[in-house]
Design a protein around this nucleic acid. Structure first.
Lengths: 347, 347
DNA sequence: CTGAAAGCGCTTACAG
DNA sequence: CTGAAAGCGCTTACAG
């Protein structure tokens, strides 16, 4: 990789002159500038941005920790982020959240040592260690938490979805169809899961409908296989007094509900209405097409990145010191498809 | 962010001494070292890795371009890469491939300016511009292409799956079940799609079975909605002489085939056997569970990263100059589930 | 054991 | 218009 010094030497000028010529600054004759420019192009000269980062104190990079890239939801969040960052000439250094949980402090140290200008945290359900939270405190740069909150990050900016409203929307939809016996397969370990459940509860209460204990199932372990959600759904649907409708934590869980119903011979939507959450691509691909609460992951990612960039712009290490973070909630909307319909039997 | 100079000043030593103490080098008394260490810890001193990158000529970062993070396949590749990189104390600067296609040269320039030590390219179907390929040539660092090849990158190292064998495996499975009338919904725009089709062709030929033109459908446009694959499947299955089995380009396409079959009232697997490719999570979640050719994306990612790291280790700008790149093919395997069974009517 | 100096690749005031 | 020098934050020979 040819250096400025080489270019300067070839052109017979000082590095200072070469620097000015290449950066478009005044102080060199047009002839000299052209000569330098052409030599630089010939030699594929690429200015070393690391130097600029050191000199300016801005690395023009942000750290990005993501829980998993395996689904259409987090993937689109990441894409939204990358898009917004790219537009601001920023790049992302990406580390998977798994590593954050297991070696969290080390990961944060890496980010600090690489002098990222800010941090985008897309956390999963697993609560990070105390050491991690501790290290976060000493991370003197803006942080934006995305989608999910957890204990210890209340002070940072947050961009998420209107999960509570989403839970309400889904419930209202089912109640509007005439359902009264509504089950909920929720994921209490995450802030989103709890909010959706609360939205459900509140809507049920508003309509004077009871939330029955045996129609409430909590997912304890959420992994890629989704074995537990499947089993829970199966158990729930095997009961004598089966619900006529079910709200799932999200689309993948809803797919497990469909699978369990299928395996038990319970027809959807004839005998059971199912609502998901997220509106992943799969939701409209499977049969029956899934009714779900659509989120806007791209927007989530873009807004999170935009907020971080604006914090970085504010300068003055806009970290926790500034007091409680700003909370932004992206709207959700109900998408009605084929997995819901009025109940067959009277409630 | 406190600097070494500050730490040194506080301790009343030279920066040189502080540097030695913190890096564990000899040349400072144990007492001094301890003092420096404790002051550094108190002030949350984080060495500036950008400086180290400049001094050593190694940034300990690699560029990673990915076509889309939206699915379980590419996501797991990326995770495999991040895992391997992290183990070698490397980090990834991630840019989405979309940007590579549209502003490819600019993206590569960014990587060059950030002095990444190598490049992991996970390309999609879209052929990048000439300007991009041109810029690639002047990128004097190792490059590893993953999963998919395209014209102009034959000289770089490549890590992909045994797509050809996979196509053969799937076909042999169907033939073994007694199918003779096998359709193929393929994606000719990608190297993987072409290889799978060839594997199919070769297997059919080996068994003396004809590949019928009207049972061969090429996907022209592959996007997230998969509207075209759905339509193609629908048309294919609406023919008078319907095939008894169908090979899909990949799992998402197979899901569209299931949807089309469902919508036409064609029962799977009773009237139609369907085989996918990839073994995404969804494959075992949907009903009927999908028979598919399993790939190993994590391994793909890990191997690609390992190969890149080894090239970087070799030093001497191991780029195209070294002649044709090494090609590595990760094995695939058939996973038989519920979407395939012997044909009902005689062939 | 400790400090002063050079150097990594650049930019930016400051002299000629 | 052009060059020499200082400085960004560090490391590493080289003197004391």
């Amino acid at each position: 990789m040819s250096s400025l010094a080489e270019i300067a030497r070839i052109c017979g000028v000082s590095v200072g002159a070469a620097s000015k010529a290449l950066s478009g600054k005044a102080g060199v004759s047009e002839a000299t500038r052209q000569r330098i420019l052409s030599v630089a192009a010939q030699h594929h000269y690429r200015p070393n941005r690391l130097v600029h980062a050191i000199q300016s104190g801005r690395s023009m990079t942000v750290g990005l920790t993501c829980n998993d890239f395996r689904n259409d939801f987090s993937g689109r969040i990441v894409e939204g982020m990358l898009e917004a960052l790219y537009g601001a000439d920023y790049d992302a250094i990406v580390i998977s959240w798994d590593l954050c949980v297991h070696e969290g402090e080390k990961v944060l140290r890496t980010f600090a040592e690489r002098r990222v200008d800010g941090l985008l945290m897309f956390p999963p359900a697993d609560q990070p260690s105390q050491a991690y939270l501790q290290e976060l405190k000493t991370f003197r740069r803006p942080i934006v938490v995305v989608d999910q909150t957890f204990a210890g990050v209340e002070d940072y900016d947050f961009v998420g979805s209107r999960d509570f409203e989403g839970g309400g929307l889904a419930t209202e939809h089912l109640i509007g169809l005439g359902h009264r016996d509504i089950a909920n397969l929720y994921y209490g370990k995450t802030s989103t899961g709890r909010a959706r459940l609360e939205g459900f509860r509140e809507a049920m209460q508003r309509h004077g409908l009871p939330v029955r204990g045996n129609w409430l199932a909590e997912i304890g372990r959420y992994d890629g296989n989704l074995d537990e959600p499947y089993e829970l759904a199966r158990r729930l649907l095997s009961q004598k007094d089966r619900p006529t409708a079910l709200l799932a934590f999200n689309d993948p869980v809803a797919v497990q509900v469909l699978a369990a119903a299928h395996d038990l011979g319970v027809r959807v939507p004839e005998e059971l209405s199912v609502v998901g959450f997220a509106d992943l691509k799969m939701a409209s691909h499977i049969r029956p097409r899934l009714t779900t609460v659509a989120q806007n992951p791209d927007e989530l990612g873009r807004r999170a990145a935009a907020r971080l960039l604006s914090r970085i712009g504010e300068d003055g290490n806009g970290s926790a010191a500034d007091g409680p973070g700003v909370v932004e909630r992206v709207p959700v909307s109900l998408v009605v498809r084929d997995s819901t319909r009025p109940p067959a039997r009277g409630a």
